[in-house]
């Protein structure tokens, strides 16, 4: 699967695919990304709760949470307790389930290869919410529409860095052409492995994975599910051709059953 979804979507001449590389090994859990995202994108308040989940009172991505910093306290971690932090975001999938199933065309692929909701088209059917393998996109109670990270479409179109990456004080969130980010991530992974950080792993970047490679990928220090990420997601629409075949034969079977039911002559 090519990593050029913009070309597949019909952009003949387009800028390089842009994305995020989130290096969680340098995240300090400051939540500047969460705040900057909300400020720039005018994302409404998403609940004020004290959860008891370490420093995480945001809880998960959703319609009004486009960056979410996870905190994992590993008290019984061998050697020394450790505190993992990771800023999660929409993966801007190469094969995006949300986009595939959207019946209105509200979800669209941009020239940067990112995935964006057009709010004036979305009718709030909720199909995308059920189709995202990462639980990213949500439907907002207050306006009935689906919302998620746009990779700051309005900023990157003007050559600016997305708000979260701009605000990140440790460069845990890096923005740039996906090719460059992938090289950088590989180098960082090698550095960490050389330093003995054996649990370090890249997440989502492999073009051979179930979503054709993510436009926003991660360097994690533990297994994905520890961070609330699915370990091996596969976009649901890969199975859709088979589903349609079964739907067609089931429909034919129903028609046949009705015909057979009428046998036995006239009343």
């Amino acid at each position: 699967m090519s990593l050029d979804p913009a070309a597949r979507s019909g952009y003949a001449d387009h800028p390089p695919r842009m994305g995020f590389f989130t290096d969680t090994s340098v995240c300090i859990g400051c939540k500047a990304c969460e705040v900057a995202c909300k400020e720039w994108n005018g994302v409404p308040e998403d609940g004020l709760e004290l959860t008891g989940m370490s420093y995480d009172n945001t809880q998960s991505l959703g319609a009004s949470t486009w960056r979410h910093v996870a905190f994992i306290e590993q008290i019984d971690h061998p050697g020394q307790p450790r505190w993992l932090m990771a800023s999660d975001v929409c993966k801007h999938c190469t094969e995006a389930g949300c986009l595939d199933v959207c019946p209105t065309g509200a979800l669209l692929r941009t020239e940067f290869g990112t995935v964006v909701v057009q709010d004036d088209v979305c009718n709030g059917c909720g199909n995308c919410v059920a189709a995202c393998p990462f639980g990213v996109i949500g439907r907002r109670e207050t306006d009935g529409g689906a919302h998620k990270c746009t990779l700051c479409y309005d900023r990157i179109g003007d050559g600016l860095t997305p708000a979260c990456a701009k605000a990140c004080p440790t460069e845990s969130i890096q923005f740039g052409p996906l090719d460059e980010l992938r090289d950088r991530a590989q180098a960082r992974l090698e550095t960490l492995h050389e330093a003995g950080v054996a649990g370090a792993q890249l997440y989502g970047e492999d073009p051979g994975n179930g979503i054709g490679g993510a436009g926003a990928f991660f360097l994690l220090l533990d297994e994905p599910e520890v961070y609330g990420l699915p370990p091996d997601p596969v976009v649901t629409t890969r199975d859709l051709p088979r589903m349609w075949r079964h739907v067609a034969s089931a429909a034919a079977a129903l028609a046949a059953a009705a015909l057979i039911s009428g046998l036995g002559g006239r009343a």
Partner: peptide, 29 residues
Amino acid sequence: GPAVAAYTAALLADTAVPAWHEAHRELPY
């Protein structure tokens, strides 16, 4: 009519919801 009765199986199965997606072969029938 039969297509209307059958397509809803794909509607549920074509999601990330495990109990629906994993049943995508049987649900239409």
